[in-house]
């Protein structure tokens, strides 16, 4: 029965999730500016907003939006215009299944993990569209690199998730968190630990490497590769569309970190906190875990140079995928034989 209340519910949820996503993306942008500045002995944003330059992301967004919205003459106008929406929509769609607390989740799908993997890959479609439709060789190369990266890194990403699913025995994200909260007994001692500490460390590493690659962040930022392809698929974009890509990129970073936090770090759950308290503090716990992972990704960016496209493929096919396969086997073995 679809009633008026259903639609009201949906609209409220969408607006809340959108606000959360954009808000967190803005915070991530600010964090990147500040964290990298301090790692580089700079102050970073200082004036915008009065204190610590907190309004810098807003100022940036405003500046971008003021620019003229250019579509290159030779571009495939429809595809060119549509591309940023696909990126943002795909990123936004991942937030649907992420549980922020036992009750605060837009939709707890039974195939939550499957849905996540499917939807998060759509961003690359948007990137490929942007690269192809821009009528620019740099953009085209950037888009193709992004596509190649997706194909190479979707596999280890999925395999790492498969290992988690095997251990949890469910594909629902709430179910995975609950599986981590469930106590396990080792030598008469009953404790509950996140998957990271109960045998998923390899999966975690693979997942993080693959997600950094999917996010096209240093050391895997070849689709943008400023010094090679000027700005890759973003070269021809300006104004609101550029802002959308920009926000989408950081929102994707948040969503990937949220997925990693949920799958490996226990999501909204931490040990020694009662179920009722989690109802209220769950979101904050998850956000703290997300922040930790985001910081980690920023840290990598401030430290490493970028790899080459062939080295990236090499790493995926020759190292990550075999290791991930082996990891799934080992996890499955323990699941079936030992426990």
């Amino acid at each position: 029965m679809i009633t008026g209340w259903f639609w009201a519910d949906v609209i409220v949820k969408v607006i809340l999730a959108l606000a959360a996503m954009i808000g967190m993306a803005l915070v991530a942008i600010y964090a990147e500016l500040k964290v990298m500045s301090h790692m580089q002995h700079r102050i970073g944003p200082y004036y915008a907003g009065g204190r610590w330059g907190w309004a810098q992301p807003f100022a940036d967004a405003l500046k971008f939006i003021q620019k003229e919205d250019l579509v290159p003459e030779g571009a495939d106008s429809t595809v060119f215009r549509a591309a940023p929406y696909i990126v943002v929509a795909a990123t936004f769609a991942t937030f649907v299944v992420i549980p922020f607390s036992p009750s605060l989740v837009a939709r707890d799908l039974d195939l939550g993990v499957f849905y996540l993997l499917a939807v998060s890959s759509l961003t690359t479609l948007g990137v490929l569209m942007a690269g192809w439709s821009s009528a620019n060789k740099y953009s085209l190369m950037g888009g193709l690199r992004a596509a190649g990266q997706l194909i190479a890194y979707e596999l280890p990403l999925a395999l790492a998730v498969v290992a988690v699913v095997v251990q949890a025995g469910t594909m629902s994200l709430v179910g995975i968190v609950e599986a981590q909260a469930a106590p396990i007994t080792i030598g008469g001692l009953s404790i509950s630990l996140p998957f990271l500490l109960t045998g998923q460390i390899v999966s975690f590493v693979i997942f993080m490497v693959a997600s950094v690659a999917e996010l096209s962040r240093i050391p895997f930022d070849m689709p943008i590769a400023e010094s090679e392809l000027t700005m890759g698929y973003l070269t021809e974009y300006s104004s609101l569309r550029f802002t959308m890509f920009f926000l989408g990129e950081y929102a994707a970073m948040i969503s990937m970190s949220a997925i990693a936090a949920t799958l490996f770090l226990g999501g909204y759950w931490i040990p020694f906190v009662s179920e009722t308290a989690l109802l209220y503090f769950g979101p904050f716990i998850l956000i703290a875990k997300i922040s930790l992972l985001v910081f980690f990704i920023l840290w990598i960016r401030a430290t490493w140079p970028r790899l080459r496209e062939d080295q990236l493929q090499d790493m995926a096919w020759r190292w990550l995928i075999p290791i991930a396969l082996l990891n799934v086997l080992v996890i499955a073995f323990f699941k079936v034989v030992v426990f």
Partner: peptide, 16 residues
């Protein structure tokens, strides 16, 4: 040179 390979941090440390 590291900047061209994508590493941003050495620039600031060395130029300082």
């Amino acid at each position: 040179y590291p900047l061209e390979l994508g590493a941003t941090t050495p620039l600031f440390h060395v130029l300082r």
